[in-house]
């Protein structure tokens, strides 16, 4: 087996963790020396310990993954009858919808942002389950309306946590 074939998704993730540890470690020099002359630990002491632990553990996982054969991998997602490659597409759709909601909430206000967001999430799950787009849209319109009103009643009216209005 060639070295690159051994780089399964688990190994790539472990490399990502090592990169994360490196980015974290890059900030440590700004925190000063780990111990004062009197032996007292400083702000960088605990982060240094954490970085060392993360490096050791991540390299241990990486080396174990590189020793594993491709046949032993079990990270293939379960197939859906309606959404192709659901293991990747599903989370991506939900992340995009959430990003749009975060952008829309302060600009378009609660009602528009919440209605679109809940409609999108409900439509995804309903379509995946039934495979019938028009039925999924119909159900999701009702779901979005009900949850948006419920959210406003709960947060704004009942608990007094005011939400952005429709500022357009």
């Amino acid at each position: 087996m060639r070295p690159f074939e051994r780089f399964n998704s688990q190994a790539v993730f472990a490399v990502g963790l090592i990169l994360f540890a490196t980015v974290y470690a890059s900030q440590i020099p700004k925190l000063g020396i780990p111990f004062a002359r009197s032996g007292e630990p400083g702000a960088s002491f605990f982060p240094i310990v954490l970085v060392v632990i993360l490096y050791v553990a991540a390299f241990r996982v990486l080396s174990a993954e590189l020793r594993r054969t491709v046949d032993a991998q079990t990270d293939a997602p379960l197939p859906s009858e309606t959404v192709p490659r659901i293991g990747l597409v599903g989370p991506l759709v939900l992340i995009v919808l959430t990003v749009l909601f975060i952008v829309a909430l302060p600009t378009l206000g609660y009602f528009v942002a919440a209605a679109v967001y809940t409609f999108g999430v409900a439509a995804f799950f309903n379509y995946e389950e039934t495979g019938r787009p028009w039925r999924a849209i119909g159900q999701s319109v009702l779901t979005a309306a009900a949850i948006t009103v419920f959210g406003w009643l709960f947060f704004d009216v009942f608990f007094g946590l005011s939400l952005p209005g429709w500022d357009l």
Binding site: P106, T118, F119, F125, A136, I147, F154
Partner: peptide, 25 residues
């Protein structure tokens, strides 16, 4: 219970809940 209703509810309450705690995007 319908998953569309369930997860739309969870998604909205999570995000609005975080926002309402500090009014910060």
């Amino acid at each position: 219970i319908n998953r569309g209703i369930l997860y739309a509810f969870i998604a909205l309450v999570s995000m609005v809940g975080v926002y309402a705690s500090s009014f910060s995007s």
